[in-house]
Write a protein that binds this DNA or RNA. Structure first.
Length: 209
DNA sequence: CGGTGGATCTGA
DNA sequence: CAGATCCACCGG
């Protein structure tokens, strides 16, 4: 069963549902322990100025405007490939950014890809490292994650994490809508990335320095 | 802390 | 077209 067969919730709800799910790609299995929710354009149900889709559809973000359960890959800061799962109905962009995971299988493969990792817990810690751990490329953009024949698949958790196991806070690196607590992680996981507020982050109405 | 790095978007 | 921006990471 994929996202499309479930009833849709708002992006934070979909983000919570994905927590604890497992991503599989080329012999590597990762359990997702940290995510962020992103909405869409100003005239949609979840206006979100921090979302790539906020200013409308472009060639890069087109996947988020399609059906749910597809992988949206983008290049961040010129060097890191980050992964999102589209989670809105077809035509209504919303996405969940996959920020960190615990490597469940394929440690050797990941270790070879991530020589800089200093511990097992940091192999897929942080969105760029997660993409690197799974060997994701821009060519994987658009992959149908709930198609068993896809090279990359996402399995939803059999049981949703209890809400007292999930913590939330402001999104990382987001300079607008910083008051919105749309980042979720599994409390106690050592693979959750360390929080860094965007250097430019301001709450709505907060005066400019 | 600073250096690194490239696709993408915006507005001339 | 050039310039600004961007949902980071690493080493020191």
């Amino acid at each position: 069963m994929g996202l499309a067969e479930l009833e849709y919730g708002d992006p934070p709800e979909m983000a919570r549902r994905i927590l604890g799910g497992t991503l599989t790609a080329g012999g590597v299995v990762v359990r997702i322990v940290e995510v962020e929710a992103y909405g869409g354009p100003i005239d949609g149900p979840w206006p979100d100025p921090a979302a790539h889709s906020y200013r409308g559809q472009t060639n890069r973000n087109a996947v988020m405007f399609g059906p749910a359960g597809r992988l949206y890959v983008y290049l961040s800061y010129g060097m890191h490939l980050c992964m999102n799962v589209s989670c809105g109905p077809d035509g209504t962009p919303a996405a969940v950014l996959l920020r960190a995971g615990e490597v469940v299988d394929g440690h050797d493969i990941v270790a070879a890809r991530r020589p800089a990792a200093r511990s097992a817990a940091s192999l897929a810690k942080g969105p760029g490292n997660l993409g690197s751990a799974l060997g994701i490329g821009l060519a994987d953009n658009g992959t149908a994650l709930f198609d068993a024949d896809s090279p990359i698949t996402l399995a939803m958790p059999l049981f949703a994490a209890y809400s007292d196991e999930i913590a939330s806070g402001p999104r990382v690196g987001v300079s607008v809508a910083a008051e919105r607590e749309w980042r979720f992680w599994i409390r106690g996981s050592s693979s959750v990335s360390s929080y860094r507020r965007s250097p430019k982050a301001r709450l709505v109405g907060e005066p400019e320095a």
